[in-house]
């Protein structure tokens, strides 16, 4: 995903612009507020942005909280399970099973224990984000070469030091993939959970707009979410380039040897 400049960026705009124009043309022909064109959506963004930003704030905060909970719990757990091979093998089938369970399916169970407030939503988000994190961290940690462990032992590192200074950085390239998937999941489930357990947030906003036939308003909110998703994705990409340069560079230098 290279952010190309100049010619590449210009040609990348052709398709979206064409779609927007076609959409606008269709909206004009339809001539109903139930099928707003991009122009009406832009007007809605202009009119509604303070509300949307406020509501997205709730959504992002919960997504972030759930994501952090998942990362803090699942990365160390994944590393640990990768090390304790026997325990890892015992829980692996369970992880595979939970991985295929869609997060909205756990909503009723979570509601039973945590109600419908922020905590309940954060728990569901954390669950959704946990799945790609634990899977990727565990696979990475399990797959580490035995050599790394022998070096660690011969340097007389403690188990904790080994996990922190060797297993964790060595697993980082795969953990990064898990983190990216977890962020996407957290955002998705944050919005979905609001639609199911309605109080506030952008999910509720979109639902209300649509219930009141304010389709343009709903689309305005969706436009906001996608821009935010894009920004977060880019941010993660930049962080990855910064922290994992050694991984990309060393795999480059190995491939030509």
């Amino acid at each position: 995903m290279k952010a190309g400049l100049g010619k590449g960026a210009a040609s990348g705009l052709i398709v979206p612009v064409a779609i927007l124009l076609a959409w606008q043309a269709l909206a004009w022909r339809a001539g109903t507020p139930l099928f707003p064109g991009p122009w009406q959506v832009a007007l809605s963004i202009w009119k509604l942005w303070p509300v949307i930003v406020g509501q997205i704030g709730y959504t992002l905060m919960r997504a972030f909280a759930g994501f952090v909970v998942a990362a803090v719990l699942m990365i160390p757990l994944g590393i640990l399970l990768g090390r304790l091979k026997t325990v890892g093998r015992l829980v692996e089938p369970m992880m595979d099973m939970l991985a295929t369970l869609p997060p909205p399916a756990v909503v009723p169970i979570v509601m039973l224990f945590a109600g419908t407030g922020d905590i309940a939503k954060i728990v569901i988000i954390a669950y959704a984000a946990a799945v790609p994190l634990i899977m990727n961290t565990y696979e990475a940690s399990k797959g580490l070469h035995v050599m790394a462990n022998q070096v660690a032992r011969s340097l007389r590192l403690t188990r904790l030091e080994t996990m922190l200074h060797i297993d964790l950085p060595a697993s980082l390239p795969m953990i990064a993939t898990g983190l990216r998937l977890a962020i996407a999941s957290a955002l998705l489930v944050s919005v979905t959970s609001e639609m199911l357990l309605a109080t506030n947030g952008i999910g509720v906003f979109i639902q209300r707009q649509q219930e009141n036939f304010q389709i343009a308003g709903g689309l305005a909110a969706i436009a906001f979410i996608s821009v935010i998703g894009l920004i977060i994705n880019n941010l993660v990409f930049q962080l990855e380039k910064r922290w994992l340069f050694w991984h990309y560079r060393s795999s480059e230098s190995h491939s030509d040897g």
């Binding site: 790394a148 070096v151 060797i166 980082l172």
Partner: peptide, 17 residues
Amino acid sequence: KGVAVVFQDYSRSLFPW
């Protein structure tokens, strides 16, 4: 304590990060 090892496989015994 007091024993150091140089392994055959240097590409795996050094840490690329």
